Simulated scan of single mutants.
Amino acid sequence: MKTIVLMGIKHCGKSTQGKIISQKLNLPFYDTDDVIAEMTGKTPREIYTEKGQEGFMEAEKNACEFVKKETALKNINAVIATGGGICGNTQAVEILKSFGTLVFLEVEEKIATARVLREIKVEPDGTLSNMPAYIAKKNPRTVQDAGMIFHDFFSERVKVYKELVDLTINVSGSSKSENADKIIEAVNS
């Protein structure tokens, strides 16, 4: 078995599944967003805001290199949860492919939409905040606008992920533990 790399749209359950799988297999768990924060002292959103997409992608690539070196030094496999946009970071994906099995956690669009939209805040002046950058940059006026932006984004992103990964596992409609078992079984087949 190789390292299990969980990929997918924001809020599809990568971190949750990663922690469950790592416990079931007694493997270390890494979340690339947490590794970025540990390495830089800043959240991924702060890096993206301060240094733009290029700066963030560099930090993400460095986090993937760190995990690869860490697991190689210890001669172990691991479970890795990636950020939702890693599919756009070719260098980071290539690093992960070099030592892991890439697994796309496919979730129904309505579930992903509800999870993303519930985090959006409507400020007293009517403006929206706390949105993913890919939604914010399109300046939605309402939560409904943000949902329409997410729809287009979701459709495009699913296609990209399916082309990149080794396995696709649908995680809609099953319990967290059942999904973890499905992922483990698929990776070991």
Rank of each mutant, 00 (worst) to 15 (best):
Y161E: 03
D31P: 10
I4W: 06
I169K: 01
G88F: 07
A180T: 10
K121S: 14
V35L: 08
V171S: 10
L167H: 07
N75E: 14
G126S: 04
G100P: 03
S172Q: 06
G52N: 13
I47Y: 07
M39L: 15
S98C: 09
T142H: 08
K137L: 11
A146E: 01
N62T: 04
K61W: 02
F150P: 03
N62W: 01
E46Y: 09
Y134I: 09
V160N: 03
G126I: 05
T113E: 15
N188Q: 13
G100I: 04
L73G: 04
E119V: 09
A37R: 08
L73C: 08
M39D: 10
L164Q: 07
D34N: 12
V165W: 09
V67Y: 00
A92Q: 00
P140N: 14
L6K: 07
F99A: 02
N62L: 09
V122F: 11
L96I: 03
G173W: 10
S98V: 07
Y30P: 03
N170W: 04
N26P: 03
T168V: 15
K138R: 14
N130K: 14
N170E: 10
A133G: 13
G88S: 05
T71L: 05
T82K: 01
S174G: 06
T113L: 15
G147T: 06
L102M: 13
D31F: 10
E108M: 11
I76G: 05
S189W: 13
D166I: 04
E50C: 10
D125K: 09
A92W: 00
V103G: 08
E123W: 11
G88D: 08
A146F: 05
T43Q: 12
K121A: 14
Q17S: 11
G13D: 06
V165D: 08
M1I: 09
V93N: 00
S174T: 11
